[in-house]
Design a protein around this nucleic acid. Structure first.
Lengths: 339, 339
DNA sequence: CTGAAAGCGCTAACAA
DNA sequence: TTGTTAGCGCTTTCAG
């Protein structure tokens, strides 16, 4: 590895001058600068980021804790976050939060001075690690899933409004016998989606059948949704619409409909959540609520960068709108404009 | 941030002793050790990895350049690589290689001293950056996609054998009118899959129709496969089997069959590649060639770690077997044992 | 067994 | 404009 000292020696200047040339804010004589530049090129010099970070107390690296990466949703978010980070000439260290190993690893890493800040995409309520991060005054942002009691920057989409919109859509089109398929965990996203949906039915005085609302801690899997939906759809007395708290659940319900010979959308409507790419495939053609993932990622990175620069800035809770994308699984029936 | 100096002061020992306690290989007096340990606990001390890295010339961080992360395949690989890295108490910096921005960024980062080694999952032939990495003597491993002319550690599955196996399966079951849907790019994976398949037909003297072999540089997308397959399947004279060079292509062809009213598997067999999770969903039930992704990731990390420790070890080219998983899209017809 | 001191490569204050 | 110098926090000789 060639160092700034090697460059200095070669250019016949002091090492400090090399450093100055590197950050051309400082004034360096034209001739000296030329010699340094030449020496750098000849030696193929790359400054050592480690040493710079040690001096500046700034690493240029951001830690990201992803939700289960083997889902259709999180790669979308990671991709967008990664692009925004790269655009700013920063780097991204990634943890997959499966088994909750990610959070503690991220905390340890930032405490060891390797990171400037942290982005959590899959915060769980009552996470001890998250509370620790907050207490230690570490710059961080919650995106996608949040934790109510934590005071910090948050970027979400309005999951409650999303659930409500689906409920209004079902009701407005006479689909009152509805099921909810998905996790009953207290993750902020699924909880809000469920709440928005349920509250709207309650508000309009339409009863929901408890036996048509699935339970379970595991979010977002196709197979669990399939198993849960088959008995519900197979029964003589079955729902005429199903709200799924994530797209994989939606795909599972579509498979359940196929297996029980219920025709979508004639017999039963199905709506998913996240509008991942597969929704538009003809096999599925699944109506789904879209979150503005790219915008969420952009703002999350923006907020974190700001937080790193200004640790005492007021916290921002940025909530984007979300929108139901209508497809064949709800008969392509358009949304009423009043909704 | 509390430093080893703070701990030393508090414990009434020298800073060097704190450092020794940290790496308990060194002999430290029992009493001194106890005092240091106590001080560390009280001060909630975490050693600065930056400074350590600077001394040791080892960062404990590995860079990974992923292929397009918004596909079903790469997240699987990234997940597995990430787990193996985490198991070794290392960290992973990730780049998404879309637009080929990833490789140069990874190179720059390792040259700046922030990484110990690099894993490339989506090498392209003739990549200037990759050649540079090799010339600079940087420890790196190619996994999944490789580049023939590069001398380095490589971990792949036998894509050519995979293609051959599919060909033999089609032929043995009388499906001789076959199409190939997928990219015609020179990426090592799709090239080998195509070659293995084509060579086997040639070997057995069965002609292939050129107009049933799709072209295109973009690999692995559902929509391109759909558009390409529709005219092929719609024709009176259509293939009785389709080999798809990636699962998304397979799903696209299944959708094309649906659209053209061809019944799978009666009218046409379909086989994909990678056996991603969705293949087993009832909507698809797609036969597909499985790569041992977890094993590939494990070995890739092993090789890289070894390479970092022993820069001059002989290069290893580790090629795993791959296996066709039979499902409904080929009528669940079992493989002959002789194949 | 323990402390003093050098140095990893860099930035920035201070002098000249 | 340029050089000298003092660290950033750690590991590791070298003395004692």
């Amino acid at each position: 590895m060639t160092t700034s000292n090697d460059v200095a020696r070669r250019a016949g200047v002091s090492q400090a001058t090399v450093s100055r040339v590197l950050h051309d804010n400082a004034r360096v004589g034209a001739e000296a600068r030329a010699r340094v530049l030449a020496a750098m090129a000849e030696l193929n010099y790359v400054p050592n980021a480690q040493a710079r970070a040690m001096r500046l107390q700034r690493t240029g690296t951001i830690g990201v804790v992803s939700g289960k990466i083997k889902t259709p949703f999180f790669p979308q978010l990671i991709d967008a976050i990664g692009s925004n980070i790269a655009d700013r000439n920063l780097r991204m260290v990634l943890w997959n939060s499966e088994e909750n190993r990610g959070e503690p690893a991220a905390l340890e890493t930032i405490r060891s001075g390797l990171l400037d800040g942290l982005i959590f995409t899959s915060a769980r309520p009552h996470s001890a690690t998250l509370h620790q991060v907050a207490e230690l005054g570490i710059p961080f942002v919650l995106v996608n899933r949040t934790v109510d009691e934590l005071e910090c920057d948050k970027v979400t989409s309005d999951n409650e409004a999303g659930g409500r919109q689906v409920a209004q859509y079902f009701i407005a089109n006479g689909r009152h016998q509805v099921a909810i398929v998905g996790s009953s965990s207290d993750l902020s996203t699924v909880r809000a989606r469920r709440k928005g949906f349920v509250d709207e039915f309650t508000r309009q005085g339409i009863p929901l059948r408890p036996e048509w609302q699935t339970q379970g801690d595991e979010p977002y899997t196709h197979d669990l949704a399939l198993e849960a939906a088959v008995p519900i759809l197979a029964a003589e007395d079955h729902p005429d619409a199903v709200f799924c708290l994530g797209d994989p659940n939606g795909f599972g319900v579509l498979d359940a409909a196929r297996r029980t010979h219920r025709v979508v959308p004639t017999d039963v409507w199905v709506v998913g959540y996240d509008d991942t790419e597969m929704c538009s495939w003809e096999s599925f053609d699944l109506s789904s609520v879209r979150q503005p993932v790219d915008d969420m990622a952009r703002v999350a990175v923006e907020l974190l960068v700001r937080r790193i620069a200004e640790p005492d800035a007021p916290f921002i809770d940025h909530r984007f709108a979300s929108n139901l994308i209508v497809r064949g699984s709800t008969g392509n029936v358009p949304l009423k404009s009043t909704q």
